[in-house]
C-alpha cells in the first residue's frame, strides 16, 4: 500500500453508489420534512460496500433462503437502507419520495413491508437480538448465509445489546457480523457526554468477540475487514466503523441537531446536494 493509495475501480464504483445514496437521503428527508440524515450519512459507505460487493443477495429473489441477511438495528437510519435497497434494484426509485408519508410502505423507521428489509426496527437495542436469532437459525439449518447487523454507538447504551453480545459468544455465531456506526453523536449531544462508553473494542473483546476497528468511510478498509470477518471460524465479529455523523454535508457533520432534522430550508437543501456532489471519494 503506497503513500498515494489509488482506489481500485470497484471501490470507486461503490463510492459513487454511496454518493447517489447520500443525495437520495437528503431528498427523502427534505421531501418528508423529517427524518434522520446524520446517522444515515455516517453509515452509507458501509451499506454501499455491503450491498454492492459483500452481500450475497438477489433483488429479483429477495426471499431466497440462502441469501445473506442484514438487520438495521439503528432503525432510524431508514433513509440509508431504503436508498441503498432501491439503488440495488429491490424497488423502484420513485417509491423513495413516499418516505414518511401516508399510503407509502416507507415507514419513518425501517419496515419489513419494504422489499429487501428483513425485520422492522426502530426501538433501539432489539435488532441485534433479531440478528442473533437469524444466525442461530442459520446454524441449526447448517446454512452458509451470513447475518449482518448495523448498530449505533448511542444504541449500545441499551442493556439488551450486551445481552445479545453474550448470546453471540455463547453460541459461537461465526456467521454473525456486526458493524458499529461509531459517529460519536446521539440525539441529545455527544456520546462521551451522554453516556461515556470508554474503550468499546476492549469491552466487546472481553465479551469474547472478534473486534476490528476501521475508518467507516474508506471503502477499501471496509471491504477488506468485512472479508476478514466473513472468514471467521471462531465466533462473531464486531467491526467498529469510525464515522462522521452527517458525513458529506458540511453543516451536518458532527452536529447533533442533524441527528433527527432535515435541511431547514431550500438554501440548506441545495447546499447539502452541492456538498455531496463535491465530496471526494
Amino acid at each position: 500500500m503506497g503513500v498515494f493509495q489509488v482506489a481500485n475501480p470497484t471501490d470507486l464504483m461503490i463510492s459513487e453508489k454511496a454518493r447517489e445514496a447520500r443525495k437520495l437521503i437528503i431528498e427523502m428527508v427534505y421531501s418528508a420534512n423529517s427524518g434522520h440524515p446524520g446517522g444515515s450519512l455516517s453509515i452509507i459507505d458501509v451499506l454501499a460496500a455491503l450491498y454492492f460487493r459483500e452481500m450475497n443477495i438477489d433483488p429479483t429473489n429477495p426471499n431466497d433462503p440462502n441469501r445473506d441477511r442484514l438487520v438495521m438495528s439503528k432503525g432510524h437510519a431508514s433513509p440509508a437502507l431504503y436508498s441503498i435497497l432501491s439503488l440495488r434494484g429491490f424497488f423502484p426509485r420513485e417509491l423513495l419520495m413516499g418516505f414518511r408519508k401516508l399510503n407509502s410502505k416507507l415507514e419513518g423507521h425501517v419496515h419489513r413491508g419494504v422489499p429487501g428489509v428483513e425485520s422492522s426496527t426502530g426501538s433501539l437495542g432489539q435488532g441485534l437480538g433479531v440478528a442473533v436469532g437469524m444466525a442461530l437459525a442459520g446454524k441449526i439449518d447448517k446454512a452458509n448465509y451470513k447475518v449482518y447487523a448495523i448498530i449505533g454507538d448511542g444504541e449500545i447504551e441499551e442493556g439488551s445489546i450486551w445481552e445479545s453480545f453474550m448470546a453471540g459468544f455463547k453460541y459461537s455465531l461465526s456467521n454473525l457480523i456486526v458493524i458499529l456506526d461509531k459517529n460519536n453523536v446521539q440525539l441529545d449531544g455527544f456520546t462521551k457526554d451522554i453516556m461515556p462508553m470508554g474503550d468499546i473494542g476492549a469491552k466487546v473483546r472481553a465479551f469474547g468477540w472478534n473486534v476490528y476497528e476501521i475508518d467507516g468511510h474508506n471503502i477499501h478498509e471496509i471491504t477488506e475487514t468485512l472479508e476478514k470477518a466473513k472468514s471467521s471460524r471462531n465466533g462473531p465479529s464486531l467491526i467498529i466503523a469510525n464515522t462522521v455523523k452527517g458525513k458529506g454535508v458540511s453543516y451536518m457533520e458532527n452536529n447533533p441537531k442533524y441527528h433527527g432534522s432535515p435541511p431547514s430550508d431550500q438554501a440548506e437543501y441545495e447546499k447539502a446536494l452541492n456538498d455531496i456532489k463535491e465530496l471526494k471519494p
Binding site: 438487520v71 425485520s119 437480538g129 442473533v132 436469532g133 442461530l136 445479545s164
Partner: peptide, 11 residues
C-alpha cells in the same frame, strides 16, 4: 428479540 429472528428465518 432472538425469537423474532428465528421466526423470521422460518422456525
Amino acid at each position: 428479540s432472538s425469537a423474532a429472528g428465528l421466526a423470521l428465518s422460518g422456525k
